[in-house]
Amino acid sequence: MALPKRIVKETERLMAEPVPGISAVPHEDNLRYFDVTVEGPSQSPYEGGIFKLELFLPDDYPMTPPKIRFLTKIYHPNIDKLGRICLDVLKSNWSPALQIRTILLSIQALLGAPNPDDPLANDVAQHWKENQNAAIQTAREWTQQYAKPQ
């Protein structure tokens, strides 16, 4: 099936005017599949880390949201061991007027503002609530260990 015009346009704009701190490059053999990197926001425990994600645009995109998953290990109450993300705009609050760039910005913002009251990784959220400083310290260590650019 031909690639919808919308996906072509979004890809072009992502290449021509990249969002600072975010990159998304489509695979040559599958233009619906993107390799994504997101820089950890400054003044967060993820600062200095570069996180890899995979992004896939399903057939009925933009009527359904893109599928996104962290590939880099990350210690965050709303991201689980498999890299799945708990974010409302990726699920019930998706709108077809949202785009790849806006969604990736939302994910970057989620790194800056973890929400342990709506957890996906229960153990991490528990840790976050009981001892926030220690949890942040662990997040920092994981960033150093797994998210450092080679």
């Binding site: 015009k5 919308r6 346009k9 933009p62 077809p96 007027a97």
Partner: peptide
């Protein structure tokens, strides 16, 4: 054209 696009299909 860019001022008269449908925000969903971008045409």
């Amino acid at each position: 054209v860019s001022d008269y696009l449908c925000p969903v299909c971008m045409s």
